[in-house]
């Protein structure tokens, strides 16, 4: 590494984090093995900047780390009581806007929403539950779509478009009415060319896109985030 490269560091909670030109604060942090909570960001995809869970403080500004370009000498605060509290509130909003019944969800223990809420110390929802009426799409022979758990991270949208070249998914509507769309004349998954081998089939951070006829292959209590907190796990798929 040249001396010019060695100067390319920013400061995260008092630690030096190296970065390469063009990298975001979250990407460099993740590559350095440090943890900033996030949901809609994934190292394989361009940032979406929508969930705001990765919000950090830079001076007087609160900005999402996933869209913030790293610059030399930048001073970033992430692990503070203030940000922990704000992230917890964001997570509580996500929980009450959907129907997140963890005990009956096959994704429990492998769910990034749940694991991030554990890490933020979220014990209750704080807000009133919306209990929205959302359909389950069981039309596909091999994949179940339970939209009750969708947090609108758009990772399936990006994976289907950018990796699979299919654009099976899209986000439609506005504000609180934003929802996941299936791009087929019927609006059902069975009428798309979606396949279980698609990247979009394995990218969902919560329990929306699930393979059928597979349950409890790994017992509750022994799953990825049961074994260790999300802050200590590798980025990406288990």
């Amino acid at each position: 590494m040249s001396s010019a490269d060695a100067a390319d560091v920013f400061h995260l909670d008092g630690h030096d984090v190296p970065f390469v030109t063009g990298e975001t604060v979250l990407a460099a942090t993740s590559r350095a093995g440090r943890y900033i909570p996030h949901l809609c960001w994934h190292p394989e995809f361009a940032p979406h900047g929508s969930c705001r869970v990765c919000t950090v403080r830079v001076g007087a500004r609160l900005v999402p780390a996933c869209t913030l370009p790293a610059t030399t000498g930048l001073v970033v605060e992430s692990d503070t009581d203030e940000l922990l509290h704000l992230r917890k509130r964001l997570l509580q909003l996500l929980f009450v806007e959907g129907n997140h019944f963890c005990p009956s969800c096959e994704k429990s223990g492998d769910c990034q929403l749940q694991a991030t809420a554990y890490a933020m110390g979220m014990t209750g929802p704080h807000f009133e539950e919306f209990y929205p009426a959302r359909p389950v799409d069981a039309s596909h022979p091999e994949i179940l779509l339970d939209l009750n758990r969708c947090i609108l991270c758009s990772l399936c949208v990006r994976a289907s478009r950018e990796v699979d070249g299919k654009s099976v998914f899209a986000l439609g509507g506005h504000g609180i009415d934003t929802h996941l769309l299936i791009d087929s004349p019927s609006g059902r998954l069975v009428d798309t060319d979606f396949a279980p081998t698609d990247r979009a089939a394995s990218i969902c951070p919560v329990g929306v896109i699930l393979p059928k006829r597979r349950g409890f292959a790994v017992p509750i209590g022994e799953r990825r985030f049961d074994r260790q907190p999300i802050s200590a796990t590798e980025e990406g798929d288990p």
């Binding site: 929980f95 009450v96 129907n99 997140h100 019944f101 005990p103 009956s104 014990t123 209750g124 929802p125 539950e129 209990y131 929205p132 009426a133 959302r134």
Partner: peptide, 12 residues
């Protein structure tokens, strides 16, 4: 007690 749990799955 915290989010209605299984009984609340009748809410829709």
């Amino acid at each position: 007690a915290i989010n209605g749990g299984l009984p609340a799955q009748r809410n829709h």
